[in-house]
Design a protein around this nucleic acid. Structure first.
Lengths: 225, 225
DNA sequence: ACCTGAACACCGTTCAAGT
DNA sequence: ACCTGAACACCGTTCAAGT
């Protein structure tokens, strides 16, 4: 009894930890049944008992990692308009990308890991597991807003993927040479993307965007030249 | 001589066709060695002879499909709806990015040139010249559509920049490991982005997007599991 | 030069059997 | 309830052998 009070993780927990270690040591790690089971010191059958499917294991591991890195709470805060909450959440997954040198270093890692080397099945699977989890989070945010009636009917997974592409674009643009209006552009672009998904304020002039809460207002448009 | 004039495709061509058929029948198709070989009526060894690696086969097939899909520069072709023309133009600036190894090589150059090294005034200026030109093109397309009255009032340069961010996102995603539904996602995302900018069909159910020319329809969403 | 098909080392999943 | 490990049906790649 004395030995378990602090850390009785159980087999399931030990599996997750083993897999998470493998991912953090090498983001391209394979997470195959036998490799994870060996690392956790159990049998393949036992792993299957706790995770009926390999994908379930991968998703759980990544979800755990994501929860540690960036929390979710903002999406349910009804004191803010849905669009502001969604923009906030998207900013949260954009934030770890950093800016300037940090952004370039981050993409350097992504580049060395997933783009420069000849892609393998392992790296592909690893990247897509990461991507799938991110997509899942965005879809979750959309589902929360949909329950509030803040979103028109339509394919939520296509919308989530659209938003992730926008975030990807903003992220790579942080690493590329930027002009001074980068921040304003990010705000304007995030609101454009979010409004496209929520389908609201643009076409209605009575709800024009210069008297709304936190719109893309400020340094936005020097109006060319 | 008489028997080859019309269609001497060769084994390699037959493999590509077989695989392309499988992809078009089901975008999530597996393209396993044995399945493609069987469909092409050859042996696995022969397939390996023409495509030393399974990935090489997949990239070639996707590239072939892209070449067939990508339309011409048609911003002024009034026989098409504005949104289709704009999507076509955006595809054209996306097309040179290539797919598979070509896309990775392209980003490798961008990376070595603009991201990895300490940025200098020269590299910044060079990048922004390229970027400005692209922005200029997109703004021109928007101005053409605006003259037709196809676009609501609003800041055109913010919209152009938004569209370029989307294209950037799609482009970097071409260099990152992709799943089989990449093409469908690109189409869906481009239409979402374009509709956000043109501000039309989404909120109006009478102009819903299932009876329009080339909408993001087909294999898009298995809606998770 | 092109093609064959067996063989190899993996993979995820299933399942009778143990405790 | 939890765990074991063999077995099954796949996978991509290699390779001696044929033509």
């Amino acid at each position: 009894m004395a030995s378990k009070d602090a850390a009785d993780i159980g087999t399931r927990g030990r599996i997750i930890i083993a897999a998470a270690e493998m991912v953090s040591e090498d983001p391209r790690a394979r997470l195959s049944v036998r490799a994870v089971a060996a690392r956790a010191g159990i049998s393949t059958g036992s792993l299957r008992y706790h995770f009926p499917t390999q994908r379930e294991l991968q998703d759980t591991v990544l979800q755990t990692i994501y929860e540690v890195v960036a929390p979710d709470d903002q999406i349910k805060d009804r004191s803010l308009p849905p669009r502001d909450r969604l923009v906030g959440c998207l900013r949260n997954i954009l934030a770890p990308a950093g800016v300037g040198q940090e952004a370039r270093d981050g993409w350097a890692t992504v580049f060395r890991t997933f783009i420069a080397p000849e892609p393998t099945d392992e790296s592909d699977a690893a990247y897509q597991a990461i991507w799938r989890e991110a997509q899942h989070r965005v879809e979750y945010w959309l589902s929360v807003l949909a329950e509030e009636g803040a979103m028109p009917a339509g394919d939520p997974s296509a919308r989530a993927r659209f938003l992730m592409t926008v975030v990807n674009g903003l992220s790579i643009e942080r690493a590329l040479p930027a002009d001074a209006s980068l921040l304003a552009h990010e705000t304007a672009t995030l609101y454009l993307a979010v409004d496209a998904v929520l389908g609201s304020p643009l076409p209605d002039p009575t709800n024009a965007r210069d008297d709304v809460g936190a719109p893309p207002a400020e340094g936005e448009a020097p109006t060319s030249s």
